[in-house]
């Protein structure tokens, strides 16, 4: 393709709606912000893009002192499980400081866009610091607080140099579940400013490159969050312990657990201590969500893990296992 003054500007051929659809398809915020300086038309249209992807390249963990100041039992328990709770985000892949204004929160970056409807934020890694060979996958839906969370956890049999075959028992499974819930509620908390500032936003996903956890807020969840955001701010300020800080409070929940010591997935993969947990809030009067009976799990689980692939296959098998319910107070 020759370039020269005879060639027309290709984007000039396109009406705004198609131009915008291409920008939505690009979706990567770094590319789009750079593109603003391509021409005045780009500069006008980029802020109207409504489908965006924000790749976060580095997460600076919450200050270590916050961890050390707390002597609570929980801090000891969870300290080892988390690489970080998100406090500051860095968008510089090299990690070096840039002299000019360097934004460190998603909401700050997104202020350059006026019409976001759908947003995906991709974090560089999962939050849980797991033993080698252990995997946890979770998908959580939120409104003002947790609406549901589906967790799949297992150990790869290939790595089982430990004698702990079988998954480490109930205690381990509960720790896995609580860890996933804390990670989910920390990500949810991090998004508060974005949801409150981006009024047209109706679909938000926060996931990570390790494919560990996914937080989803849909249109209804978003509305519920915005309507309650003033009360929520007070609630959050009232607690000062680190593991309550920087995250949304998890309501009292019922956790339906299913567990198989060994699952053989087609393709030769073997999962040990495979655990599926479906978490739902319980109402104040102790009544469970109407959807919380058996049948309701299938839909949630399918929505979380899809219909194809090893995880879908694993959860389908686990759904056939016997289940039991544990209840947990708000934390």
């Amino acid at each position: 393709m020759a370039s020269g003054p005879d060639h027309p500007d290709l984007f000039d051929l396109l009406p705004d709606p198609i131009f915008l659809l291409i920008l939505n398809r690009v979706s990567d915020i770094m590319t789009l912000l750079r593109c603003r300086s391509v021409s005045k038309r780009f500069n006008t249209l980029v802020p109207q893009a409504d489908t965006l992807l924000l790749r976060v390249d580095r997460v600076i963990s919450a200050s270590d002192s916050a961890f050390n100041d707390s002597l609570s039992f929980l801090s000891t328990l969870f300290k080892s499980l988390f690489t970080s709770l998100h406090h500051l985000l860095s968008f510089s892949p090299s990690g070096k400081l840039i002299e000019a204004r360097s934004p460190n929160s998603p909401s700050e970056i997104l202020r350059d866009f006026d019409a976001i409807k759908s947003l995906r934020i991709e974090l560089p890694s999962g939050d849980l610091r797991l033993e080698k060979g252990t995997s946890i996958k979770w998908v959580a839906r939120f409104g003002k607080t947790l609406q549901s969370c589906v967790i799949l956890a297992f150990r790869n049999s290939g790595d089982s140099s430990n004698d702990n075959a079988g998954g480490g028992g109930l205690k381990m499974r509960v720790v896995w579940t609580i860890s996933a819930l804390i990670a989910a509620s920390a990500r949810h908390y991090m998004m508060a400013d974005v949801v409150n500032e981006q009024h047209s936003l109706s679909h938000l996903v926060v996931n990570d490159r390790d494919n560990e956890g996914t937080v989803i807020m849909d249109k209804d969840g978003m509305r519920e969050f915005r309507e309650s955001s003033e009360d929520a701010a007070e609630e959050i300020n009232s607690s000062a312990v680190w593991w309550r800080n920087n995250r949304t409070t998890v309501p009292a929940v019922g956790m339906r657990m299913r567990h198989e010591p060994k699952l053989e997935i087609s393709g030769g993969m073997v999962m040990e201590g495979a655990t599926l947990v479906v978490v739902r809030p319980v109402h104040d009067d102790g009544r469970r969500n109407e959807a919380a009976d058996h049948g309701g799990d299938d839909g949630l689980v399918a929505a979380a893990f899809g219909k194809e692939g090893v995880y879908a296959e694993a959860v389908e098998m686990l759904l056939k296992s016997r289940s039991y319910i544990l209840e947990m107070n708000s934390f």
Binding site: M30, R36, E99, A100, R101, D112
Partner: peptide, 15 residues
């Protein structure tokens, strides 16, 4: 152009 490049400097990394 210079002004815009300054404003979004962080977006110029990793091209």
């Amino acid at each position: 152009e210079e002004q815009m490049k300054k404003e979004f400097a962080w977006a110029w990394e990793g091209v």
